[in-house]
Nucleic acid binder design. Structure first.
Length: 601
RNA sequence: CGGGGUGUAGCGCAGCCUGGUAGCGCGCAUCGUUCGGGACGAUGAGGUCCCGGGUUCAAAUCCCGGCACCCCGACCA
């Protein structure tokens, strides 16, 4: 395509409202424009990238036998009422009424419609398995859109749904998707980690996310480079590091009060009492299902709320200051598990690292090995023998020292803390790495969560009616594009992975009005096009610097320059990624381009 | 939902504190000189100063109310 025939509004300056690199570059490169908060226009270049991503997705989905359909995005509310999500989902769903007052929604995902269709059309086990997919818009009224196209309110998604007779069939469909997804990301030139993820406390089945590492991402994942364990921190198990210093054992029979005036935070208390944060129990009061509960983690750990929510099987929120006082008799900062008023009405849930005799992760969880002191050094063993903590006394400006779990209070134990950099891998004990990333895809084993309430059943071989066992699988093409930009760019602009670049070759003609250059550029353009390359021929009457700058900004993998030496029949071929600039005869241009292309990522 | 910030030409911003003819850079248009890494000169077009109300002789500027957008946190199938 000729640049003079293209709409490519590049901009010199970063947009004022952009934070993420991908956001800035996609706006500057003329790929997208914001229309409203979280709502974006895809300009020609941006749409070409999307089309290329979508094409790869289609090919790989078709490759596992999935069938493409197109589902409505405007749904009557009753299907969502049938699944229970009409009420379960809050303001994140766009809701409206039609002219006769019927409740409608804009689809935020498509489990309901697909299941509705399956319930009407799939009758026999002979109809199974099926995998149906679509590339369709989703609408989610995000409370806070951000990061350009990373977190938006209207976006394209490839979503697929598998329908199987039983769990074994679901496992096969799930594995097929893993294969397809791995190939999609490989082809898109994107680094991703497939990690265990939270399937939500209602589903309970297996789920994975594909996370592409980037500082602009909103997810954190725990990775073990030694054994390959990988999980979102919202459910990652880990072996807590033993504290740097062992807690001195007082040997006293019961806790002792100490005055801690105005010392509320872990930092303040640890500094005041000259102890390490790990020697303090952090007590956090939450409200779950309308009732207060106390969550306990070690002072050097952070609670992960979704772990608490999953354990309690209820949504949780931090208690308000008044609620904390009502539940414990003390204000925030002096709350603890010992000496609570009114008997033991407050449920106390403690992290595994506080369990007497252990500083471990989640014993008993699948795949969790027993933790041997030898693995984690002498400090761990010493710590295990101490058991004494400092905790809030539930009295103003007072803490307790010498608190022993199990002796001074009872608690339920579960994995509550967020995995930290350097924690031990739950599988092999080696240190975990925490990385930030963008969720570019997810896969869920739904089971019969939707097929049961929506009545999607088939008759099995024995003539028995059985609910279809389902999976759902999403990929965000725009997030793939943004993640690629996040991963591959330099100070001049984007360096697209070759498979999803808007054009394969950016052909710069230095002098638009030079007939020799025009002729040579035309020859090069035709030759490359004839070989199947998508070429953007920049024959605009601009200064060379502008065209080079745009070429770098737009980020096509190969640049061909037709300039002064065109008169001698020479052109230049160069990789966007850098490296040497090759000067070749016009006739050698195509093979040279191929070479640079092959070498590109 | 809590906290913070910003709305002035297509884009990026100054002006607001201390009220008095609305500015700068980029971009855009025309002409000329230029032409291998975002040129230079000349001329020019382009503004409901987010919206509504108030104070005042006079409001981009002060006051009240609203809206939009951004950032941090909470939330996120």
């Amino acid at each position: 395509m000729r640049a003079t025939a293209l709409f490519m509004p590049t901009v010199k300056e970063d947009p004022a409202d952009a934070e993420a690199v991908s956001h800035k570059l996609m706006v500057r490169g003329g790929f997208v424009r914001q229309f409203a908060s979280g709502i974006y226009i895809m300009l020609p270049l941006g749409w070409r990238v999307m089309q290329r991503v979508c094409r790869i997705i289609r090919e790989e989905m078709d490759g596992i036998g999935a069938l493409e359909v197109s589902m409505p995005t405007l749904h009557p509310a009753d299907v969502w009422q049938a699944s229970g999500r009409y009420d379960a989902i809050g303001q994140e769903m766009f809701r409206l009424q039609d002219r006769s007052g019927r409740d409608m929604v804009l689809a935020m995902t498509h489990e309901e419609v697909f299941t509705w269709l399956a319930s009407r059309e799939l009758r026999s086990y002979r109809d199974l398995p099926q995998i149906w997919y679509q590339l369709q818009l989703k609408f989610r009224d995000e409370p806070r859109p951000k990061g350009g196209v990373l977190r938006v309110r209207e976006f394209l998604m490839k979503d697929s749904y598998s329908f199987d007779l039983d769990e074994a069939g679901l496992d096969r469909s799930y594995e097929k998707h893993i294969g397809a997804y791995d190939r999609i990301f490989e082809r898109c030139g994107l680094d991703v980690y497939r990690v265990e993820s939270d399937s939500g406390f209602m589903g309970g089945a297996q789920a994975h996310e594909y996370i592409s590492p980037s500082p602009a991402g909103e997810d954190r994942i725990a990775l073990c480079e030694a054994c390959g364990y990988a999980a979102n921190v919202e459910l990652a198990r880990s072996v807590a590091r033993p504290p740097e210093e062992a807690v001195p054992v007082s040997g006293q029979a019961e806790p002792r009060e100490v005055a801690t005036p105005e010392r509320r935070t872990i930092e303040e208390v640890s500094a005041f009492l000259h102890i390490s944060p790990a020697s303090i129990m952090k007590a956090l009061v939450y409200v779950a299902g309308g009732r207060p509960v106390m969550a306990l983690v070690r002072g050097d750990h952070s609670l992960h709320e979704s772990k608490l929510a999953r354990y309690l099987k209820a949504e949780v929120r931090p208690a308000l200051p008044e609620e904390v006082v009502a539940a414990t008799g003390a204000e925030v900062g002096f709350v603890g598990p010992v000496g609570l008023p009114g008997g033991n009405s407050l449920r106390i849930i403690a992290d595994e690292s506080l369990r007497p005799g252990g500083s471990s992760g989640t014993p008993g969880a699948p795949g969790f090995p027993s933790v041997t002191p030898g693995t984690h050094g002498a400090a761990g063993a010493a710590f295990a023998g101490a058991h004494e903590y400092v905790a809030g006394a539930n009295k103003p400006h007072t803490h307790l020292v010498g608190v022993v779990v199990g002796r001074d209070f009872q608690a339920e134990f579960t994995d509550l803390r967020e995995a930290q950099q350097g924690d031990g891998c739950p599988e092999c004990g080696r240190p975990l790495t925490i990385k930030q990333g963008i969720e570019v895809a997810n896969i869920f084993k739904l089971g019969t969560k939707y097929s049961k309430p929506l009545g999607a059943t088939v008759l099995d071989e024995a003539g028995q009616e059985r609910p279809i066992v389902m999976g759902s699988y999403g990929i965000g093409p725009a997030r793939i594009a943004a993640a690629a930009v996040e991963q591959q760019h330099d100070e001049r602009g984007i360096i697209w992975p070759k498979a999803i670049a808007p054009f394969d070759v950016y052909l710069v003609q230095i002098q638009a009005k030079d007939p020799v250059q025009s002729a040579i550029a035309g020859t090069v353009y035709d030759a490359l096009s004839a070989q199947g390359w998508e070429v953007l021929w920049d024959e605009r009457d601009e200064r060379p610097g502008s065209k080079f700058a745009d070429a770098d900004l737009v980020g096509c993998p190969v640049r061909v320059t037709v300039g002064k030496k065109a008169a001698d029949g020479l052109v230049e071929v160069q990789s966007r990624r850098g490296g040497r600039r090759e000067e070749v005869a016009v006739d050698d241009c195509a093979p040279t381009v191929r070479g640079v292309w092959e070498a590109a990522r």
